[in-house]
């Protein structure tokens, strides 16, 4: 009872990275609170799933396994989670801020009237004293997230309702095997007691999942373009530099919105969070919406014609100049001088 729960997303038999990242974070929270970390896996053909989850610290793995539970559909998964949560009474429940998690978590929070904070960038344990009533709450989950287009950072709490629910985007938390693995004790869920026929009212007719082609998250070098690139054609030079350096191309929201490149390349609060060894920001002004997704980079180089671009405030090197002039020079030097 009153443990930390993580809903684990499973696509084609594989646990999503975001779920393993949440288990890593959940383990830290559970250690602080002195409670167990429990994983929740709903789907089909899940035998042995605990072996994937225990290394990340899962003490218990609740498994609901039936053919009709995969692929993911909102209503049956929500019904099982609500049923289980009513019995287990978790104090914290974490979901990925993925299409699945952002569809599922609000439904669950509404049914349990528990409150939910979306897209948290940090989760901490702390106390709170209500200014009006003077009531003190200990060991609350601080759900920290940017709001208002990233211009403010808000700390949200749920003092009176459980579970305290939060979603976190992929790549925001680190995925790390726990020092001591969890026991991974499997508890089979009897799903039938939570499900009704009406939970299966949505029929999936067709489903086409593409393998992830673009993966900027794990790239050691990211060459990112912003609105200042001017056009889709100009992005070609960034692809060339990225290829030469063994990296990937990223982009700001403004560049993606303008149709210059793919959404999968978007870095920032509403895109991917990255921590490469080197981040080269080309024609990116550096709105907080963007920097929130890349300020953990080991080194940042900005190339911008505006010497006062906000990006320069977080850059290690600020090259004042035209991307179309600077980038070819970088390519040329690297080609000539690298082994």
């Amino acid at each position: 009872m009153n443990n930390v729960f993580v809903y684990c997303e499973i696509e084609s038999g594989k646990v999503a990275d975001v779920s393993l990242e949440l288990l890593t974070k959940g383990r830290v929270l559970a250690n602080t609170l002195g409670c167990n970390l429990e994983a929740l896996a709903i789907g089909h053909n899940l035998d042995g799933i605990e072996k994937e989850l225990a290394p990340y610290g899962a003490d218990v793995v609740h498994v609901a396994d039936a053919p009709e539970l995969a692929p993911f559909r909102t209503l049956p998964h929500a019904a099982i989670i609500c049923g289980l949560f009513k019995e287990e009474k978790p104090q914290i429940a974490l979901f990925g801020a993925s299409p699945v998690g952002r569809d599922l978590a609000p439904r669950v929070s509404s049914a349990l009237h528990s409150g939910l904070t979306a897209d948290c960038t940090s989760l901490e344990i702390g106390d709170h004293t209500d200014a009006k009533s003077g009531t003190t709450y200990t060991n609350l989950l601080y759900q920290i997230r940017p709001a208002f287009g990233g211009n403010i950072i808000a700390t949200i709490i749920n003092p009176d309702h459980r579970p305290q629910m939060a979603t976190v985007r992929e790549g925001v938390m680190k995925k790390e095997v726990a020092k001591t693995p969890g026991k991974g004790i499997v508890k089979k869920i009897d799903a039938s007691k939570y499900l009704n026929d009406t939970d299966f009212v949505v029929r999936i007719i067709d489903r086409q999942i593409e393998e992830r082609k673009i993966n900027i998250k794990s790239a050691p070098v990211i060459v990112a373009g912003g609105y200042g690139m001017g056009s889709k054609e100009n992005f070609a030079i960034l692809h060339e530099l990225a290829e030469v350096l063994g990296g990937e191309v990223g982009a700001s929201r403004a560049a993606v919105d303008a149709g210059m490149t793919d959404h999968a390349r978007q870095v920032g609060q509403t895109g991917v969070t990255v921590r490469p060894k080197l981040y080269i920001a080309c024609g990116i002004s550096g709105q907080i919406q963007h920097t929130a997704g890349m300020d953990g980079s080991s080194m940042v180089i900005s190339i911008n014609t505006d010497p006062n671009a906000p990006i320069n405030k977080i850059a290690d090197y600020a090259i004042v100049g035209d991307v179309m002039e600077v980038v070819p020079k970088m390519i040329k030097y690297y080609k000539q001088n690298s082994k």
Binding site: S114, P146, I156, A315, Y317, A318, V320
Partner: peptide, 20 residues
């Protein structure tokens, strides 16, 4: 159920970039 405990305005940590 959710309450705002704290609001912080985002201020960049001032760091001197090397100008090139």
């Amino acid at each position: 159920p959710t309450k705002v405990k704290k609001i912080e305005n985002v201020v960049f940590a001032a760091k001197e970039a090397k100008r090139l």
